[in-house]
Design a protein around this nucleic acid. Structure first.
Lengths: 413, 413
DNA sequence: CGCCATATGTTTGACCCCGCAACAAATTGC
DNA sequence: GCAATTTGTTGCGGGGTCAAACATATGGCG
């Protein structure tokens, strides 16, 4: 708590800004690119319908985007009725390619992804628990170099997105605390920028926030404007999409739900407190209740539990029911506080979902009030373990989408 | 939890909309009105600076707003340097007046408020606990009629805002559950609309959401874009301002933090669950711990506690420390999840704040992670018990601000 | 008191962006 | 092969903002 810093924030009084005509153009260009990026190729005439803009305006916008190399037109397909067929418009992936990086507890992954979501290449390698930030950055830089080498010659690299399992400041990619990676106060954004040697900005975000973004844009939550993504790795993190936009809080720390108090008589958390949600519903709780040594973690733990559960081992099933119950109770809390339409389970909850489902729903039903509970669903993620990686790509691509012309200008200028 | 309804939401896939030129005008008119509404009179030249718009554009906008009766220009004041003095621009309160209504547990209040925040008149009367919705609406309609009668002849009434201590659906003002008012499934928006007999729309919102809005616009949180307002009445509610905008969730239920689980071994809540935050930190907990009969509630309870605390009664002080601790722990949870810059305490926490402060800060420090905790402050509200009432006015006035020309058109057409 | 410097309101013209209407083009169906 | 239909294309007009030139209102200075 800080009684003085707030005054600084207050000086930045909200002063509504006016907007000129070029802002209009930027907005409309972004609307077209976003639509194509998210929903794939559509005909010109469909674009006029969905955007509400005039035929001639759409023609003009597409012309500009074509010149920018972000979009191309193809032949019309399946002219279903009478009338002149409308050509299909699609993104040009090579017009804007980003490097996506995920630094997770047990693995790191790198991918090259183009506008529209085309994945050029993707690799994932294991990461030893306890590896230092410098070492991990080295590994990632190596992988990134290879992937960039492997790209076709005509692609334009335009940004880097990074997901990391820790408390991350958005403004500069500074990782305050990543207990499960064993990191603290790491200037990850800077380190990666210099290790990669690219002139593009490096955007660093929390893994759960990116999982949420990915599931919202391309997963089970596609088009659901109010959703929460629960990332179960060593700890628990939550990413929140509110009204179609990531909810980040003042500095980007929002969603640290793993360390909310849910059971004062519970177990000691590595954050120093007692009874945090993740001590009752997280990986450590699962190992503890299932009677598996705490040295078995990550994928090893999941595989062991999954094997035993499939064999019908009662102790394992009970353990899953118990952490499922706590998981559900915590989800109920989040439902009360955020009123989402959907809660998406990722991380190790994803493969275990069939065994957790019943207890999770019961716990959530118990914890949530009727009104918000009635409109909330719970589901396993649609993108599996790659959700945060895809989210990292989306994060970087969003910069291009937000200002297609400005971005290209900056690149050629 | 509902496994089917979500598909309906998904059909409403986010399709980015294009924007035409008139939207630009609306935005800029709104920017000017909002600036004047929030920050009071400013000179024309200051407006050009803060909005970033051109001198000539500002002149044009002010001309239109003057014609609409929303704004007027006065003589320049205090020309500090050389140069032609710039006339002051201020809101014309009578150009858009709203009726604000607050339905609280122990009292109801009504006010007439003009653009810029000018309060014409304001009344508050006690409300017996247990009064039915129909009875309360009757009382409020009577008070409203008197206040509207008392308005000057030239004012233009333009909307109604209502705050109610319950789980409220924003779209139609339907109150799902107001346990502390004793209401359930009340079509409050409709009832008030017909009882008032006005043609203006009636906007109903949760009391805590309006408290947050009020403290953000005119209270201790003025200009702090990430804040949480805690409303301590019979229960606990939270209103969230995120990035300068109310965070409402999918249906407007967001912020029901009073019923988040914080102590599984705690007390039974009237919501049916055990160990909700409000059973540990709410009014009932205070009475229980201070040894005051549960029949003493609301203001009576606060007065009793305050008197005893001022006398140095140890049992009362201990009770305050205990609920302060729980309050702080719950605030710590909210800080982790929302990463706010400021947490504002309202309702009965406001008068008791001096006795709660120490324990609240300790609890919050314990519950919050370092990173979000370092940038969060906790403070008593700046508007006292009237915060939700002022918020109700702001809610209704926001409609005018968002589209000044359109609103006037609708009125005269 | 008159002049200059300065800041700001006012007017005019230009540009950008979008919508509209007329026309041209491409397809279906008869 | 022709009408109906849908959509791309072109030219025009209007709304909105900006930039520049001009007009106006002040303070400072000699």
């Amino acid at each position: 708590m800080n009684r003085t810093q707030i005054t600084a924030g207050r000086d930045a009084h909200h002063r509504p800004k006016g907007v000129a005509a070029d802002e209009l153009r930027r907005h409309n260009l972004a609307a077209v690119v976003e639509s194509l990026h998210l929903h794939g190729p559509v005909s010109r005439s469909e674009l006029t319908a969905t955007t509400g803009l005039n035929r001639s305006t759409i023609a003009d916008l597409i012309g500009e985007l074509t010149n920018l190399g972000l979009v191309e037109e193809g032949p019309a397909v399946a002219p279903s009725g009478p009338g002149r067929p409308s050509p299909m418009v699609r993104t040009r992936p090579q017009g804007a390619v980003v490097l996506a990086i995920e630094l997770s507890v047990d693995s790191v992954a790198v991918a090259t992804v183009g506008l529209g979501g085309h994945v050029y290449e993707q690799v994932r390698v294991p990461r030893p628990r306890g590896e230092s930030a410098a070492e991990t950055v080295d590994v990632v830089a190596g992988l990134s170099g290879e992937l960039i080498e492997g790209l076709p010659a005509d692609v334009i690299l335009t940004g880097v997105g990074v997901g990391v399992a820790g408390v991350t400041r958005r403004s500069d990619g500074f990782v305050q605390l990543a207990p499960n990676l064993g990191w603290r106060n790491v200037a990850l954004g800077e380190m990666l920028a210099s290790a990669l040697g690219l002139r593009d900005p490096v955007l660093v975000a929390n893994e759960a926030d990116l999982g949420a973004l990915a599931e919202y844009r391309r997963g089970v939550g596609a088009g659901v404007p109010h959703l929460i993504y629960i990332s179960g790795e060593a700890g628990i993190g939550a990413g929140i999409i509110h009204d179609g936009k990531p909810m980040l809080g003042a500095a980007g720390y929002a969603g640290e739900a793993g360390h909310t108090l849910i059971n004062p008589d519970g177990h000691l958390c590595r954050c120093g407190a007692t009874g945090c949600w993740e001590t009752e519903a997280g990986e450590a709780a699962l190992a503890r209740l299932a009677g598996i040594p705490s040295s078995v973690t990550g994928l090893g733990l999941v595989d062991t539990v999954l094997a035993r559960a499939n064999d019908g081992d009662q102790k394992t099933l009970d353990a899953l029911a118990e952490i499922g119950r706590w998981l559900g109770l915590g989800i109920g809390n989040l439902i009360n506080v955020f009123n989402p339409q959907l809660v998406v389970l990722g991380g190790f909850y994803h493969p275990l979902f069939p065994f957790l489902e019943k207890a999770v729903f019961e716990g959530a039903r118990l914890g949530a009030l009727d009104a918000p509970g009635d409109i909330a669903d719970i589901a396993a993620g649609g993108l599996g373990p790659d959700a945060p990686l895809i989210g990292a790509a989306e994060l970087a691509i969003s910069e291009v989408i937000a200002d297609p012309a400005g971005h290209s200008r900056a690149r050629s200028g």
